[in-house]
Amino acid sequence: MFKLKLKALGHPNPENFNCEDEKEYRSIVLWLEDQKIRHYKIEEREGLRNIDSDSWKEAYDTYQKDLVSPINSGDPNEQLNWLLSYAVRLEYGDNVTKYKDVKVEQPKQATPNVVSSNPLDNLDFGSSAFVAGVDRICALTGVGPHPNPKFRLSAVAKILKTAPHPDHNKGDASIVQQPNDVLKLLFIQDLRELQTKINEALVAVQSVTADPRTDTTLGRVGR
């Protein structure tokens, strides 16, 4: 645990640090204060320096209070994590010019890049055409202004979901009607493909289960 942060802080042995070990834990806290945080004057660090003493815990609590740690009541690992982060922050603050231009190497993605087949996902939501389109729908549905067009679009969706038949201006009907018709046709095409696949699956199962029989001796014509 904490390997990356320890390494960043230049700890001599980041690989083998075991935070579960009480003694190692105490010494790392002392190391942080001595080398990195330096919140106390050297003589004030006496309490933390007595690693084997029973009063170390008290000194540690006071230390955290003095640092105004937000998690002084959390579990020891969380506390240490905060201390480490705090130390990293100080380290960065001391050497801004050195770290400023460092580029973070993009970690390799575990999953292959999925290219969405849904054309809606590939829309350019920032384009002026999109913004203008949203403006027009908003005018029709009475949605007020907001700087983010996506936000306004979700407001429109909410209105359409709760009121299935919004009253729209008859004169502008074709503006809504045409894209509506196109969407319906696309939907029907998708649905047909799905239904065909369902039928194919049913036929595949039938090849295993089907055994239609008739027995004419059972038949009887009524009165």
Partner: peptide
């Protein structure tokens, strides 16, 4: 009135048919 069908069925087929409807006819081909 009183006619009988020529598709052989027993009581178990009947129970299944009542539950499955046309899915039964489909399964049986």
């Amino acid at each position: 009135v009183g006619s009988k069908g020529i598709i052989p069925m027993n009581a178990r087929d009947m129970e299944e048919a009542l539950e499955m409807g046309m899915d039964w006819s489909l399964r049986e081909g």
